[in-house]
């Protein structure tokens, strides 16, 4: 009995350690074959889902506050990282250069108070979203940890037809 309990304890510890390991830095394309992009927000955010159009408006800064009045902080990967361009293409249907142009244009118009924050890695993005109540970011779906995953058009990244999957067409 003692041996069984001890072995079970060791297995549980190993499992817990494995879960606690830092998320791997992987490319969306290379190690996440399904290519699903999970949209993550802080656990305290009352929003559970968005339409792709609402998500696009947030990334384009047409919408800048959550329904509870908290300011939205859009978090992207650092400039030049492929994950940044890919997310912009999937969500906003434009290139990274076009998006940068759009942000500068809107800032120049005075429409944007502060632009998107840039984050170096997926784990840093998860930490940022975990700590910032108004933040919204994205990570490969298999790396989500400690944050709330939003349904997009009512679907989670694991659901068939999820719109932010490689090969899925934006609307």
């Amino acid at each position: 009995m003692t041996r069984v309990v001890f072995i079970a304890s060791m297995c549980a510890l190993l499992l817990a350690t494995a879960v606690r390991a830092r998320p791997r830095e992987v490319s969306i394309n290379q190690e996440n074959p399904a290519g699903a992009l999970a949209i993550v927000v802080n656990q305290a955010n009352p929003v559970d889902g968005l339409t792709l159009g609402e998500l696009r408006r947030i990334f384009m800064f047409d919408t800048q506050t959550w329904p509870n009045g908290r300011r939205i902080t859009v978090v992207l990967r650092d400039k030049g990282q492929p994950e940044r361009g890919e997310a912009i293409r999937r969500v906003c249907d434009m290139s990274e250069a076009e998006y940068d142009d759009h942000i500068l244009f809107q800032t120049f118009r005075g429409s944007i108070g502060w632009g998107p924050r840039s984050i170096m890695s997926a784990s840093a993005m998860l930490r940022f979203v975990f700590n910032a109540p108004g933040a919204i970011g994205y990570v490969p779906a298999d790396q989500v940890e400690g944050t709330k995953v939003l349904r997009i058009d009512g679907l989670l990244p694991s659901n068939p037809g999820y719109p932010l999957r490689r090969g899925a067409r934006g609307r």
Binding site: T2, V5, F6, S9, A12, L13, A16, V19
Partner: peptide, 13 residues
């Protein structure tokens, strides 16, 4: 062993 199991299964996760 039970305490260890409790710690492993409940507290750590």
């Amino acid at each position: 062993a039970c305490i260890l199991l409790f710690v492993s299964v409940v507290i750590v996760p």
